[in-house]
Computed example of a mutant assay.
Amino acid sequence: MNINKLIFSAKALILGMSISTLVLILGLASLEFLVRKIKPQITYDEAIAMSRGYWRPSNFAPFTWKANLRYGDFTTNSLGYHSDEFLIEKPPTIYRVLVVGDSFVEGADDFHKAWPYITQTLLREDHNLEVINAGFYGGYSPDSYYAYLKAEGLALKPDLVVLGLYLQNDIADLKPNQWVRTEANGLPLQVVSNWRKVDGQGRQWDGIIPLRYRYPYLYNSHLWVLLANWLDRTAPFLFHPSDEARQLQENNFYNYLTFTDCIYKDEGCLPQLQPEFDKLLFVLTGIDKLLYSQDIPMLLVFETSKWQAKLMSNDSLADDNIYKLQRIISEYFQKNGLSAKLYDLTPEILSGNPIDYYKENDTHWNDRGNELVGQLVSGKIREIIDK
C-alpha cells in the first residue's frame, strides 16, 4: 500500500511538474510573441547583420568611413565621403560648401536624398557650386569637427563651412572623448573615444559585451534581450567587472537620462553635464576663430531633435525649453563677438506637422524632412553667397 501511494505521489509530482513546465513554456512563448509584436528588440543575429564594416581608423576622429563602400543604397566615394566624387584641389570657378556634422548631416543611406545634396541641387539652379557632405567622415561630435578641419577640411579650400549641430547627443557625445593630441591652445588635433570603438572588420562596438549577447541559447530571444537590457541599466555591477559596470552606468546616464531631463528639462542634473557643455562652447569658439582666420564664413545650423518637436511618447517639454540650447549658444556667440551666422530650423519644423519630417521608428529625418532642411539651408546659403 505504501509503495502504491509512493508511486501515485511520484506520478502526481511528475504530472504536476510537466504541467507547470508546459505552462511556463507557453507563458514564455506568449511573452516572446508579445515583445516581438509590441516592443521588438535587436537580437544578436540582427545586430551582426546591422554591424556592417563601414569604418576605418582615423588620425583625427575615433573613426571615419571607409572609401568606396557599397552597401545597398549606402555608398562612399574614393576618398571616403558620403558624397559625389570631387577633386581635393578646388577648381577655380567653383564655390565650395563643406558640411560637417553627425548622422543628421550624413542624412540618408542614399546621399542623393540627404539634405546637403538637396541643398546643392537647389543652389545649382543659379550658382556654380558644389556641396561636400562630410557628415560622420569628420567624426560625430563637435570636437572631432575641429580636428577634421585642421587635418583635412581646410585643405579642401571651402568657401563656406556649414556645421550641423544636433541639439541632443552632440553634448553627451563629448563625455567619452579624449583629446590625445592638442594644440598649444588646448584644442583637439586627435579625438579618441572610450566608448565607441572599431574592430578589425570595421564594425563599431562599445568595447563591452552586454549581458544580452553573452549566452548563445538566449541572445536571439526578444524577451531575453529586453530583460537583459533592463538588468544592465539597473544593476550592472551584478553582471560585469567593476570597470565595465561603471562605464555602463555612465553610458546609461548619458544615453537615457540626459537627453531630456538634463539637456532640456533641467531637472537637477545639469551640473553633471556642465563640463561637456563648456567643452562644446570651447570647440565651437575654436572652429569659429579658425575659419575666421582663413576668411571662411560659417553657418551654424541648429538641427531640431525629435524631443524638441514633441514627438517622443515620454515628452512633456515646456515651449521655453524647446529653445533653451539655441538661446544659450546664441547669447554666448553674441557676447564673445564670434562671426558665425546661426540658423535654427526649429520654428520652421514646428510650423508644419513635425511628425511628417521624422522616421517613425528612428529619431532622424525621413526623406521629407531632408527635403525641407535642404530647402531651408539652401535659402540661408544663397543669402550668404549673394550678400
Rank of each mutant, 00 (worst) to 15 (best):
I38W: 13
P40N: 10
Y292F: 12
A12Q: 14
L15H: 11
D319K: 05
F259R: 15
V373Q: 01
F282P: 00
Y254T: 01
T304D: 03
N314M: 15
P116F: 00
I88T: 13
P188H: 00
G107V: 01
L6W: 15
I48C: 01
C269I: 09
R196M: 10
G337M: 11
S330M: 05
R246G: 09
R368K: 13
L87G: 00
Y166R: 09
I132G: 05
L13N: 14
N128L: 15
L281T: 12
N336C: 05
N185D: 13
D102V: 00
W195I: 12
S20A: 15
G186M: 06
S193Y: 03
K387N: 15
N336Y: 10
M298F: 09
E267V: 10
H112Q: 13
K310H: 10
D126L: 04
R203A: 12
D266T: 04
L34N: 05
Y148C: 08
S316Q: 15
F104T: 02
W365Q: 02
Y217G: 06
G80H: 02
T234W: 08
S193Q: 04
N133F: 07
N252F: 14
S141I: 09
V192Q: 13
F253R: 03
P216W: 06
E250Y: 02
R382E: 13
N68Q: 13
F239M: 07
N4K: 14
L372H: 01
E371C: 01
E371A: 08
K380W: 08
D232K: 06
R246P: 06
T363R: 09
Q247W: 06
S144Q: 04
L291S: 05
S83M: 08
T121D: 06
P92L: 00
V99R: 01
V100Q: 02
F333I: 02
L290H: 08
N353L: 11
L122F: 03
P271L: 01
S242R: 15
M312Q: 15
I38C: 10
I209T: 15
T119G: 09
K150T: 12
P92H: 05
